[in-house]
Design a protein around this nucleic acid. Structure first.
Lengths: 202, 202
DNA sequence: GCTCTTATTGATCAAATGATCTATTATGAT
DNA sequence: ATCATAATAGATCATTTGATCAATAAGAGC
């Protein structure tokens, strides 16, 4: 699938080749970790190792391209508006968001690269989580507080607990590689429902 | 603290030295990852790299010792009995367990080494999670179902959701290194309470 | 204080790895 | 067909890293 037959040399346009490299690199590094070697990656591409350096100045450069490809546009620009749409009950809004969000990030590549780079101390993770909080989770928290009215609504730490319980499904599957439900929909929906129930949200 | 002054050669009893190495190795590998070098570790110990091989046949051997030291006896033998003790309400039992459990595993070393070895595909993680499920989480699930009586009690996937939401606090702090509450007690307690509330558990 | 055991060092090897540079050759334009 | 461009390969360098082994000296026992 990845390899090239023997010594056949195929010549691609730079843009195309670059994308081939980044794609395979994302798959490769998500599998073996950020310390995977450029040599092994080049083998999987059916290409010499030196070719990688025709496209990227350094391995760090290549990794940056991988991060960009994996994270970029994972946060849909529609979500903030949907979270804020009070014509729909908060519970349904939360359900909708987490259905889409888990659909977007519950992939082998995303989950593992996010974890690898988190452990490596990359600033990208903190920045991503900051964005997520600012754009989505904090507004969601505010909406739930508004919907709770007189009753006590959730605080941000409660929202993080909801979030963590859901994300943990992906961690179990793609990081720990233990069995999980085939369909993530039901457990995610149940988690959101329990959360809303416990705060008396409609 | 770790280093030794210049060329001073101190001679320790094998057991003592071995423990020094494993201790520092746990701190070291939890920081930089399982691919940290034996040379850097030896520097932190104020010792030659070759000395490590007087105590461990290989780096893999040393890592195994680290895993053992980090995981071993983390699961208290008392927990199963406490989970099963029906003279106490399940909610209180769950509270008690998660207070102790988070107290045991919410450390820099445990959290990160568990994540590193999970990503590395070590069998240890799956075995640990298997033990945890069999000894504690499944019994807890059964107890909650019993307490729920006619009402629908939680299924294992619900328990995993509770568990994940709690563990995620530690992941945020020690893996992603983002701000978390100083005291883990309140958010953990709140999470357990919400869970019990949503299932109508006393 | 002396001796003997052995914990520890220092030098070294072989393989792996990121990076560089020049020689090839596939491909589009003429 | 032929040529020119540049995408790609192949060889190579300098470090790094796990591992080995003979030489050294710290410390216990007499």
């Amino acid at each position: 699938m990845a390899g090239q037959a023997a010594n056949e040399r195929k010549r691609y346009a730079p843009d195309e080749r670059r994308q081939m490299i980044v794609d395979e690199a994302a798959a490769f590094f998500s599998e073996v970790g950020l310390e995977g070697t450029t040599r092994e990656l080049s083998q999987r591409l059916g290409v010499t190792q030196s070719l990688l350096y025709a496209y990227f100045a350094s391995k760090a450069d290549l990794l940056e391209a991988v991060f960009e490809r994996v994270y970029l546009d994972r946060l849909s620009p529609d979500w903030p508006a949907q979270i804020a749409d009070r014509t729909v009950p908060v519970r349904a809004r939360a359900q909708h968001f987490y259905r889409e969000y888990t659909g977007a990030i519950f992939t082998y590549e995303w989950m593992r690269i996010f974890m690898f780079s988190g452990l490596a101390g990359t600033e990208l993770n903190r920045r991503y989580l900051g964005h997520l909080a600012k754009l989505i989770l904090e507004p969601l928290c505010a909406e739930m507080q508004h919907a709770a009215g007189k009753k006590d609504g959730p605080q941000m730490e409660d929202i993080w607990n909801l979030h963590g319980g859901i994300v943990y499904i992906g961690i179990r599957k793609f990081v720990y590689c233990v069995p999980t439900p085939d369909d993530f929909g039901p457990p995610v929906e149940a988690a959101v429902n329990r959360f809303c129930d416990s705060f008396g949200l409609e």
